[in-house]
Amino acid sequence: MGIKSFQGKRDTSQAKEASQILVSDYMTTNLITFKAEDSLDHVIEQLITHKISGGPVVNDKNELIGIISETDCIKHISESKYYNMPTDINNTVGKYMVTDVDTIDKDMNVFDAAFKFISSHRRRFPVVENGKLIGQLSQKDVLKAAIKVDGNTWL
């Protein structure tokens, strides 16, 4: 004789409905941004001062036009400072920034964004709405979301 369960029929309506965790819940909105006409020396100072690895480049309408990173600044250093050449006044963000920028939507699930980080090898994604920069999601933001989420509620 086997053991019988006395739980009875399970009510499926009691199942807890998990809500999605969106990029907008974890993105940073107070961003350090740069302009195309900013000097790279200014960018380097800002990266060091604010302990960040890069930032979005916007125009006067706050539209995203590029990204500048530590790597882009290192290219500048290797081209001029390494050879002890005078600083060119044309060493601006616009000359060194990456203009082909991948963005993500604020309504994207954070864990879908995590897969995008893995496949693209990027450290940050700008969040754009109607052409305007509204925030940025970093890998660290995804980690913050993962810590707060119970493992079986991921969507």
Results as ranks from 00 to 15, higher is better:
91 N>F: 01
49 T>Y: 13
80 S>Q: 13
61 K>S: 11
131 G>L: 01
146 A>T: 01
14 Q>A: 12
52 I>Q: 08
151 G>F: 15
45 E>T: 11
8 G>D: 05
100 D>C: 05
123 R>I: 04
139 Q>I: 12
113 A>E: 05
107 D>A: 07
140 K>L: 09
54 G>Q: 03
20 Q>S: 14
12 T>I: 14
28 T>Y: 03
89 I>K: 14
87 T>P: 11
23 V>F: 01
69 S>G: 09
23 V>W: 04
9 K>W: 10
142 V>P: 04
4 K>F: 13
58 V>I: 10
30 N>T: 10
134 I>G: 00
66 G>T: 00
90 N>L: 11
152 N>W: 13
45 E>R: 13
120 S>L: 04
18 A>G: 06
34 F>D: 07
155 L>W: 10
87 T>F: 12
43 V>A: 02
139 Q>R: 13
120 S>D: 02
75 K>T: 11
151 G>Y: 14
100 D>G: 08
6 F>N: 12
44 I>C: 07
68 I>V: 10
49 T>K: 14
101 V>P: 08
115 F>T: 13
124 R>G: 06
101 V>F: 06
136 Q>A: 02
17 E>V: 14
149 V>W: 05
24 S>K: 02
134 I>K: 01
150 D>Y: 11
37 E>N: 09
73 C>V: 01
59 N>S: 03
146 A>E: 00
85 M>F: 13
62 N>W: 09
8 G>I: 05
89 I>V: 13
73 C>H: 02
112 D>I: 07
85 M>L: 13
147 I>P: 05
155 L>S: 12
147 I>L: 12
63 E>N: 12
14 Q>M: 13
25 D>L: 01
39 S>I: 07
52 I>A: 06
52 I>K: 08
117 F>N: 04
36 A>V: 01
99 T>I: 09
98 V>Y: 09
136 Q>D: 01
146 A>K: 08
117 F>V: 05
81 K>R: 14
39 S>P: 03
71 T>H: 15
33 T>E: 09
105 D>I: 04
80 S>N: 15
133 L>Y: 00
6 F>K: 15
16 K>H: 15
148 K>T: 02
139 Q>P: 07
6 F>V: 15
101 V>C: 08
3 I>P: 12
89 I>R: 14
12 T>Y: 15
26 Y>W: 08
109 N>H: 09
147 I>G: 09
121 H>L: 10
111 F>S: 04
